[in-house]
């Protein structure tokens, strides 16, 4: 595996069932809309190396099941996540209403510092909209989230959502707000179970340094 990257971030995609989490991920990874989508049971994965602010960052994305019932299972996957896409469906108020619960989970189980971007998905279904942009952006502001409306169907803002989240994490690393070296802080430099940590210590030591930008 000859991939090289400066950082590895663990990302979560969370939100209620049917909001399009897997489709967002698929759109991000494959640049295509996933037509015949199954519901996710447990967790699925995706990864992609992106270039953010001159750094190559590998995003390791955990796409979790949305059904409430699975939360006890998916919660165990939050640990060590650096970023999260919190997804709701702009045509379904219910999915919007449960955002607070998802957010609480993310902040308590991953880390209080987890960088979360709120994604109002299915932007292409504007005529059926039940949640206004304004309302959601207010929610985002109150909860210190970034916010974008996305469409996994058209691809609009999908890449942006991931990149924006990654960029913010990088900035926080730069500013010292996040220390990738410190384990257990919730936000990690990569993920504990990842390749990078298997590599000689030096490889890790190098990584934080390039952040002098």
């Amino acid at each position: 595996m000859a991939e090289t990257y400066d950082f590895l971030f663990k990302f979560l995609v969370i939100g209620s069932a049917g909001t399009g989490k897997s489709c967002l991920l698929h759109q991000f990874i494959e640049n295509k809309f996933k037509q015949d989508s199954n519901h996710t049971i447990g967790v699925e994965f995706g990864s992609r190396v992106v270039n953010v602010g001159g750094k190559t960052v590998k995003l390791q994305i955990w796409d979790t099941a949305g059904q409430e019932r699975f939360r006890s299972v998916t919660r165990s996957y939050y640990r060590g996540a650096a970023g999260a896409l919190l997804v709701y469906d702009i045509t379904s108020r219910e999915t919007y209403n449960s955002l607070a619960a998802w957010l609480t989970d993310a902040r308590t189980l991953a880390s209080p510092n987890i960088v979360v971007i709120l994604c109002g998905n299915k932007k292409d279904l504007d005529p059926e909209r039940e949640v206004t942009f304004l309302e959601a952006s207010r929610f985002a502001q109150e909860n210190e989230l970034m916010f974008l409306e996305t469409s996994a169907l058209t691809g609009e803002n999908v890449e942006e959502a991931f990149l924006k989240c990654a960029r913010t994490i990088l900035n926080k690393i730069d500013s010292g707000e996040l220390d990738p070296e410190r384990m257990g802080s919730g936000i990690q430099y990569g993920d504990a179970s990842l390749r990078q940590l298997r590599q000689p210590r030096s490889a890790q030591a190098v990584a934080p340094q390039p952040c002098g930008c």
Binding site: A17, H39, Q67, E68, E94, N97, S98
Partner: peptide, 26 residues
């Protein structure tokens, strides 16, 4: 739908079933 149907209600309401059926062996 407009206000405050809890997620639990939603599941009980068979809505999720509807949603998932369309996603079963699509």
């Amino acid at each position: 739908d407009i206000e405050g149907v809890s997620v639990a209600d939603r599941e009980a309401s068979l809505e999720l079933i509807k949603l998932d059926i369309s996603r079963t062996f699509p």
